[in-house]
């Protein structure tokens, strides 16, 4: 029973963190209908940002969080205006974005490999706390709790953005129907650019904590992170950023339960869930039913 409790609590924590890992991908898809296949590479960049903050500046890796936001702006703004409007003028933006961002992902990985080599990098183990903190008698490393706290802050912040700000209303309007939003006078391009920057920043922030939850970070970790993120957002609801949290929790708890009882099969969890969701409820657990006329 203790193992079951540990797996469930661990799964919830892991799932909340992976919601943050994936949420930027869903936000960008929801607003722009483009698939950012370089999402995992932006998460990886966040991890390397934190690595630089600690190794070069001697600061706590938590300072990687503001750096990720700055990086999101510095990369997101030119990338958006250089690429996205052109994509959206094309006949099949989803497919084209798939190819284009695959190229971006490969470029980022290649550049990072040139700059940092292929070695795994880690962050100081005790920087986010050296002890363990328990809930219901189950102890988890301090770094997990910090990662979860930051994830909840980011997800909560995104919810407030959607529900309390004019830009957030406009973003939701675009998610609901881009053409109608355009017709009502919303500056779709500007709102989309902001969403794009937020999406990349959230990915970067998640990256800061990846070395603590998965041991280390290397330039080649991006593709796996993209795949996992993609599975999570499909499980939750593709195009509904906050649905990502449900996807993350299902993924986290499922993975940890499998690790506890059938560890060999644990990597299958996100993909089995993905297939089941696509077959049974294609719009995702939180997706709205689709009505066909």
């Amino acid at each position: 029973m203790a193992l079951l409790e540990y797996a469930i609590i661990g799964g919830i924590l892991y799932g909340i963190f992976f919601s943050l890992v994936a949420i930027g991908l869903n936000l960008i898809f929801g607003v722009m209908r483009i698939i950012n296949l370089a999402h995992g590479q932006f998460v990886m960049l966040g991890g390397f940002g934190a690595y630089l903050v600690t190794s070069s500046l001697g600061l706590n890796p938590i300072f990687g969080v503001p750096l990720a936001v700055l990086g999101g702006i510095a990369i997101g703004y030119p990338l958006y205006y250089g690429v996205v409007p052109r994509l959206q003028r094309s006949r099949d933006p989803e497919m084209l974005s798939f190819i284009l961002f695959f190229g971006v992902a490969q470029m980022i990985e290649a550049v990072m490999t040139l700059l940092f080599g292929v070695d795994e990098r880690s962050l100081p183990g005790e920087a986010l706390g050296s002890g363990n903190f328990g809930v219901l008698g189950q102890q988890f490393p301090d770094s997990w709790w910090v990662a979860v706290a930051v994830s909840l802050l980011c997800i909560g912040g995104l919810w407030l953005y959607f529900s309390r700000t004019r830009l957030g209303y406009a973003t939701r309007a675009i998610i609901a129907n881009r053409e109608e939003a355009l017709a009502t006078g919303i500056n779709v391009n500007r709102v989309s650019a902001i969403a794009f920057i937020i999406g990349l920043s959230l990915a970067g922030i998640a990256g800061v904590f990846v070395p603590y939850l998965v041991g280390s970070i290397s330039p080649s970790d991006g593709s796996d992170l993209t795949t996992t993120s993609f599975a999570i957002i499909i499980i939750g609801s593709l195009g509904n950023p906050l649905g990502t949290v449900v996807g993350g929790l299902v993924f986290g708890v499922g993975t940890m339960l499998m690790q506890t009882f059938y560890p060999s099969w644990s990597n299958l969890v996100p993909y089995v869930l993905l297939v089941l969701i696509v077959l049974v409820r294609p719009s995702g657990l939180l997706g709205k039913a689709v009505r066909n006329a």
């Binding site: 203790a2 193992l3 540990y6 797996a7 661990g10 799964g11 892991y14 988890f140 490393p141 997990w144 939850l213 998965v214 041991g215 280390s216 796996d224 993975t255 940890m256 690790q259 506890t260 560890p263 060999s264 644990s266 990597n267």
Partner: peptide, 20 residues
């Protein structure tokens, strides 16, 4: 005595299962 996927990088729950 258990195998895990080759890409496994999250050992927290596994270690607690083993410690039990």
């Amino acid at each position: 005595y258990h195998g895990v996927p080759t890409g496994e990088t999250n050992y927290n729950v596994l270690l607690h299962t083993i410690a039990a």
